[in-house]
Design a binder for these strands. Sequence first.
DNA 1: TCTGGGGTCCTAGGACCC
DNA 2: TCTGGGGTCCTAGGACCC
Length: 399
Amino acid sequence: MERKFLHIDVNNAFLSWTAVERLKNGDKLDLRTIPSVIGGDESKRRGIVVAKSNIAKKFGIKTAEPLYMARRKCPSVVVVHGDYDVYKRYSDELYKIFLTYTEKVERFSIDECFLDLTGYLKPNEDLVKIGIEIKEKIKKKFGFTVNVGVSDDKILAKIASDFEKPDKLHTLFKSEIEEKLWNLPVSEMFMVGKKSIPKLNRLGIKTIGDLANFDKSLLIKNFGKYGYMIWKYANGNSNEEVNYIKEKPKGIGNSYTLPYDVGNISELEVILAQLVEKVAYRLRKEDMYATVVNVQLKNNNFKVFSHQKKLDVRTDTTKDILKAAKELLNELYNGDFIRLVGVRVDGLVEKKEMQLSIFDMPENSKNKKIDEAMDRLREKFGEDIVGRAIDIKSNIDDK
DNA sequence: TCTGGGGTCCTAGGACCC
DNA sequence: TCTGGGGTCCTAGGACCC
């Protein structure tokens, strides 16, 4: 049976959502009508462009570039901080709308969903018409726009939604790829990033059509599995399914860019402890145990290095994770001036009643009680109630 | 007034085992 | 005393996505 996929992508999501929220709260200025960006706090060295208005884009401002560069391109650009809670709320509302069309909705990111409507359409319904209906409904209800990609292949639907923006619906059926996809430069291809472009170019691959028609085994020889994947995508044969059942995370991590470079391990350990608190809390909220702990540092030259280790016993306690993280930090730290510290737990496994006995040891139950008490404080007063050393530090820095 | 943060997947090399 | 080969596990690093 012919498959029926939609990919729906919010146009300039963080910027649009912030703009709509501000209008709702009585603001007269629509950020979408001026050169504006969502950006981080420069005094805390988070000064990058997270999202931009279409007008900002016309000035050549790019996502992820430093704000000072954006200002150089457009001195009058308005920079606004983001609000993740607002974004989460709009994302949830969208998801609810999509679920009225099919239960097969995959939340690919906070502002993108895949819908599988195969077998969900009545005989008189048409996939494109449904796409238009969804698009118009969102615009009317919320006041922001989306792009809709329509295809009989999941990845082609995603590529289609990336065509001309905003507020557009595009089809890219397998039968249309020669005409609509293959003439585009290979740099436009989903999953082809800036490291792969020159490598592909060196093989004579300039367009997506070149990629699709390139010798498969030669691509595999040069790029391994990755080569096979992008070759399939370019030929419209991803054959991927919409993963509508929410998967458990495989790893959980937090990282922190320090407001100033730190060249001293005891100061790093303070930050490390804060990050472990956060990561361990999120791990417990997922009802999972970690089997691997990873610590990452970035030095003042932006060189990233990391160490990880497998734990002897799976755990979800702050204490165990901190112990491992400290050991890793100590073997990792070489005296560099450090810009960023990160902590991740990996190899996550779901909690099962079975192993309770191992964790009922006196020492463990004590740690558990501490963690539970802290977690209750977090639930009650918000995450910031415990461990505020990071904030105190940056406040001092602001003075 | 220099470059965020959260993820997933893959690869290469070494250790270790049979 | 010149040394294969297959397999698994672990670690470090990198590419890509939003």
